[in-house]
Design a protein around this nucleic acid. Structure first.
Lengths: 173, 173
DNA sequence: CCAAGAAACTTTAAGCTTGAAGTTTTTTTC
DNA sequence: GAAAAAAACTTCAAGCTTAAAGTTTCTTGG
């Protein structure tokens, strides 16, 4: 970016400046892409939160937790929920407590290992989630309405590769 | 998804089931895309937060605020920062206060309108931001490393359309 | 001018989130 | 078979975030 300063002798230009167009440390394109991705995520997420609150007086973290539990008929170990949701265990403690109080979730100590908690949706929780999840699906459909099938497929693919790229960077390759 | 259950009489298949492939209320594809987008955003953002903390003992919200101020040579009205960052003004109050305490940001009451605060980076803030922003750029480059030029361009385009779709849904069209 | 309304914040209560430290229970190692 | 290490949480302090309510300062309509 600072490389565009231009009042120097021609020697400087010839010296090693093929890089002007593609400077080694220039990640401008990636940063703009990152910001756009973040904007999409933030806009949609904020709206989902708003509607969840207005329509159901519910929060997104609670919804996400219930979504994880929905697929596990027999419940799920807390640590597994933590891993899947990519949040800390400490975070879940309070979240689960709230949902237990509401009667949406049950919490049982594993008989095999008394350190382990097994979390599951109650019947009531399952029913409540079904209703919210249906609306949630409609909202997403609405927010993504103008996206063509092709764009959807294309985004799915490319974001898959991005996810792989990030994961590989995180695993220190 | 559940629609793939297949052992029924052919009558059922003929009955009204063109929709098996495209049920009216099925937003499965969009939801999967949404979750993938969110995963990418979360993975990258979490890592950026971690590195910002480890390397500079700094937080992402503070970095984002300084990033907004960096381009405004003469400072920026608080409300404008709020709009650009898509966060509430109440949020910024405390954030700005912290950065003022650190000496990175100055806060001035506008002489034209005493309700208005003008926020700007100090020299020290600008210098500190430069250093962090350079590293930030490198991190993004690293996380996006395995993405081809073509994928980048393609994502930029398609996410632009997604952004448009979300925005149009929000403006109640 | 002046009251009503709008605008630009600030304050507050509630909730999410994390990293670090602490507890209990199980597993490993010698 | 202890002591040490590891695992699965829970607790805590600090920080971010928002919506709603409150304050101060313009702006406007009469």
């Amino acid at each position: 970016m600072d490389d565009t300063k231009n009042g120097e002798s021609q020697a400087e230009w010839l010296d090693g400046e093929t890089k002007v167009l593609e400077a080694p440390g220039d990640h401008g394109a990636e940063i703009r892409l990152w910001l756009r991705l973040l904007t999409c995520a933030t806009l949609a997420e904020t709206e989902i939160r708003r509607r969840l609150r207005e329509e159901f007086d519910f929060t997104l973290p609670r919804f996400d937790l219930m979504a994880q539990l929905e697929r596990a008929e027999k419940g799920m170990v807390l640590g597994e929920v933590s891993r899947r949701m990519m949040v800390s265990a400490g975070n879940l403690t309070a979240l689960v407590e709230r949902l237990v109080e509401m009667g949406y979730v049950s919490r049982t100590v594993s008989p095999k290992d008394r350190r382990v908690q097994i979390i599951a949706l109650t019947g009531e929780g399952r029913a409540a989630f079904r209703i919210m999840a249906d609306r949630h699906g409609e909202w997403i459909g609405e927010l993504f309405k103008d996206l063509s099938r092709q764009d959807e497929a294309l985004l799915m693919e490319a974001l898959g590769r991005l996810k792989g790229s990030i994961r590989s960077a995180l695993s220190g390759v």
